[in-house]
Structure formats: structure tokens, C-alpha cells
């Protein structure tokens, strides 16, 4: 009999004191329609889903379905983001609107961008916004560069998670600097989630094998040829990577093989085997 539950119940992702079974967080952008969004999110097993805050489309949307009908806040932890904000002031203003929109919900994703071409985070503005938001009672999960000093400063300001990029948002380039991620994981006590840059399932598994507490992705699922199938692949990859991290990988031995089969008892011991 196989154990029905492969992931131990005790291995929860804890963010701001709340436990989540899934270590995969997903975005909701770039899907064909809300039905595809809903099916992909379901297949991913994610419990935390990000949303953006935007102006309502005045006069054009009577009767149009809304995202939060497809992904009800009663079922999912909605994580409003500050995508598109380039200043701390705009990010704080956006998240105050999000808090009102979501009935006082405090958990948010802060991202303050520095450049429209790379969408690289502006860390001075991110730190300033984090300080204001924490003082205002928000629980801040902060998108950041993979600079260990920046990640540590975000933690010191009271962020509940730090989320360094693996590579540029939407690039699908995977983990370009695993060593920095390892330093951040070693130095920071709050959860470290890779956010941005995941391209395919192996990238997510590698992030988890490095010891990340979770992975946040959007485009890798939404822009796969079959988003729902890729969502399932990502779920499995995050679980596999987490299990591998917990299991502890074997030591790598680059210059010497080690046979898995017995060296003795061969039916025809080879006299010609090199010594």
C-alpha cells in the first residue's frame, strides 16, 4: 500500500502566521479568459493567487464577468500586487485601495519597478514602500532583486516574505543566479519565494531544491501551449523539488563513479577489465 498523502501534513508554508499546503503561488494574468484562469489555478493546487488593481472600465463592462467571481476570495487567498507602480507612493496607494476592495485583507505583494524594459525592481523605492506598508498594518511579501543585502533589509523592515527574481519577469529564463538565492535562503529567516523568471517545470524544481520556501509564477503557466497541463506540471515540480530538498541530495562526485550493482558475483569476471 502506498501512502495516500505524499506530502507530510506538517510541511506547510507558513506566511504571516498562516499555513498553506501548497508552495506554488500563481498569477492570474495573460490567460485567454476567466474560465481558463480558473481551470489553470485549480490544476496548480495554488491557494494564494495574485491579482492586479486597475481602473474599472467605465461604461463598457455592465454584466461582464469579473475575476473574483472565477476565483472567489472565500476559496483563495487573494494577493493583490502593485504591478506597474514605479514609485513607493503609487504602490502604497494601490495597496490601500486593494485592502478596501478585499474587506481589510492585509497580505499583499509589493513590487516597485525601476525600468519598463526589464521590469527590474527599484529597491530604494521598494524599501521605502515596505516601511510605510508595514507601519500601516500590511503583511508585505516583497518582490526584490536577488541581492542578499536587500532581502535582509526587507526582512528587517518587517516584510513577511521576500521574493527575489529568478530572472526577468515574463522572460522564462529560469534561475540565472542560484548562488545568490542560496545566500538569501541562508541569511533570511522569513520565507524566500522565487518570483519571476520560471520557464518550465525543472526551473521550479531547481528553485525548491535550492531550499526556497515557495515559487510564484504566472507566464510560465499562462503562456504554455496547454496552460492547464503546465499548471499541473508546476504543481508536481514544486512538490518534487520540495521533497528532494527535504530528503537531502547525495553528494556530487564529479570525478569518480560508484557502481550501484555488486562488484562481485559476475558470471564471467572479466580478465580484460582495466585495473
Amino acid at each position: 500500500m502506498n501512502a495516500p498523502e505524499r506530502i507530510e501534513a506538517g510541511d506547510a508554508l507558513v506566511v504571516a502566521g498562516k499555513a498553506y499546503r501548497s508552495r506554488l503561488l500563481v498569477g492570474t494574468g495573460k490567460y485567454r479568459d476567466f474560465d481558463e484562469t480558473r481551470r489553470a489555478v485549480e490544476a496548480s493546487g495554488a491557494e494564494i493567487v495574485t491579482v492586479a488593481i486597475r481602473r474599472t472600465n467605465i461604461g463598457q463592462n455592465a454584466g461582464e464577468p469579473s475575476l473574483l467571481e472565477a476565483l472567489p476570495p472565500s476559496r483563495y487567498t487573494i494577493l493583490p500586487n502593485t504591478a506597474g507602480c514605479y514609485t513607493a507612493e503609487d504602490a502604497v496607494r494601490t495597496l490601500r485601495l486593494a485592502r478596501e476592495l478585499l474587506d481589510g485583507h492585509a497580505l499583499v505583494k509589493l513590487e516597485v519597478l525601476g525600468d519598463a524594459r526589464t521590469l527590474y525592481p527599484n529597491m530604494p523605492e521598494t524599501l521605502a514602500a515596505a516601511k510605510t506598508l508595514v507601519a500601516d498594518g500590511f503583511q508585505v511579501m516583497a518582490y526584490c532583486s536577488d541581492d542578499p543585502i536587500m532581502a535582509k533589509q526587507l526582512e528587517d523592515l518587517g516584510c513577511v516574505a521576500v521574493m527575489p527574481l529568478a530572472s526577468l519577469i515574463g522572460s522564462g529564463m529560469g534561475i540565472v543566479n542560484p548562488w545568490n538565492l542560496r545566500i538569501i535562503i541562508d541569511r533570511v529567516q522569513v520565507p524566500v519565494l522565487v518570483d519571476a523568471g520560471i520557464g518550465t517545470a525543472s526551473d521550479a524544481a531547481i528553485a525548491m531544491e535550492l531550499g526556497c520556501d515557495g515559487v510564484l509564477m504566472n507566464t510560465a503557466i499562462a503562456k504554455a501551449r496547454e496552460p492547464v497541463r503546465m499548471a499541473r506540471a508546476m504543481k508536481l515540480a514544486v512538490e518534487a523539488g520540495r521533497e528532494a530538498w527535504l530528503a537531502g541530495r547525495m553528494p556530487a562526485k564529479p570525478y569518480e563513479a560508484s557502481a550501484s550493482s555488486p562488484a562481485s558475483g559476475l558470471i564471467a569476471p572479466s580478465a580484460s577489465a582495466p585495473k
Partner: peptide, 10 residues
Amino acid sequence: IEVVMAVGGG
């Protein structure tokens, strides 16, 4: 006046 809603995003 700003009237905002939640939309798909990452």
C-alpha cells in the same frame, strides 16, 4: 475620483 477593481495579474 478613482474606481478600481481586481483584474488578472502576476
